[in-house]
């Protein structure tokens, strides 16, 4: 007996033409006489149509260049780069399954420095690959990488590369060492974003601290503000919010003009600190900056009248 339940379970295979003729006919006959199953089948077919309507791509690829790149990379691989025979970590098992083949002798090693330089300018996928490969290079490679990372004479991009690779290690101690190095004041010219990025499991504290630093720089401010906004929204009225407010107060109170500017940038981006800024009207050394910000934000001027400012922003947010 064919029940709807048993048919429903086979509708996908029916549509995909995976059933043997007998079963196929069984499903066809049932659907022809059962409206509920027919509706279900049509829904599957509509989904299939939508999925297939999504175009692929390929016009963007310059195929001859593609072929020569792959060919060159393959020849480099044969000469041996890094100490990898199988580039695919999880894939090792499956290759073993396809054939029991003797492993080839380890290829000669490429100098680490060259690899780090490659890493520094590589795309995300290649970076991930180098990170994975490094993890399998064994203790000697890790030691060498750590030495490069800690060497004060290592050029910054290479140092950053070493830090990032080590920060991706599975070994907690190695990762800890890398993170510690990353938190040290960045070398002149180092890519601070790269350092921030490797905070593999950053806490809000760490993120806030780094992000606040980066709001001081024109080029990194936009991304840093996005991060702060996100954290702030997540921890509305929570410790993260309080932490941000505390640090922003510090910035706004700073003697350094760049700090104050960064503070106001944050306040403006977060859109939640007007009330805090109003409080700043009481803080000597901060009053001017706060007033300036409030005037610009409101297009009004209530001077030192905190109540008036509060009423204004309450009205405004009430209207929104």
């Amino acid at each position: 007996m064919t029940t709807c339940t048993s048919i429903r379970g086979a509708l996908g295979e029916y549509m995909d033409r995976q059933l043997d003729p007998l079963r196929r006919e069984e499903v066809r006959a049932h659907v022809a006489g059962c409206e509920a199953c027919a509706v279900e089948l049509r829904a599957l077919e509509r989904l299939e149509q939508v999925l297939k309507s999504v175009p692929g791509d390929g016009e963007s690829v310059r195929w001859e260049a593609y072929v020569s790149r792959v060919g060159a990379a393959a020849r480099r691989a044969r000469r041996g780069a890094w100490k990898v025979i199988l580039p695919l970590g999880a894939a090792a098992l499956f290759f073993a399954g396809w054939a029991r083949w003797a492993s080839t002798p380890a290829p000669p090693e490429r100098p680490l420095s060259a690899l780090l330089d490659e890493y520094a300018s590589a795309g995300a996928a290649r970076r991930a690959q180098i990170e994975r490969d490094a993890g399998r290079g064994g203790a000697a490679d890790l030691q060498a990488l750590i030495a490069i990372m800690l060497d004060a004479h290592t050029p910054p991009p290479r140092q950053v590369a070493a830090v990032r690779i080590l920060a991706s290690s599975n070994d907690e101690r190695v990762r800890g060492l890398a993170l510690e190095q990353a938190r040290a004041p960045a070398a002149e010219g180092a890519d601070e974003w790269a350092l921030l990025e490797i905070g593999a499991e950053p806490t809000d504290d760490e993120l806030i601290e780094h992000a606040i630093e980066l709001t001081k720089r024109e080029d990194t401010a936009p991304e840093a503000l996005r991060i702060l906004r996100k954290i702030d929204r997540r921890g509305l009225n929570g410790p993260a919010h309080a932490d941000i407010v505390r640090r922003v107060r510090g910035l706004l109170a700073s003697e350094v003009e760049g700090d104050r500017r960064a503070g106001l940038r944050i306040v403006a981006a977060l859109e939640v600190l007007e009330e805090d800024v109003i409080e700043f009207l009481d803080v000597p050394g901060l009053r001017e900056a706060a007033l300036d910000f409030l005037r610009r934000r409101a297009g009004q001027d209530f001077g030192a009248d905190k109540e008036a400012w509060r009423a204004y922003f309450a009205r405004r947010s009430g209207k929104m």
């Binding site: 791509d57 691989a77 054939a99 083949w101």
Partner: peptide, 25 residues
């Protein structure tokens, strides 16, 4: 639908296949 990623991934796939061609029977 990320063309850059797809190009890189597929190229790396060919290189990996090349390196492990001995395993392909």
């Amino acid at each position: 639908g990320r063309a850059d990623e797809a190009e890189e991934l597929s190229q790396d796939g060919f290189v990996a296949a090349y390196r492990n061609l001995a395993a392909f029977r």
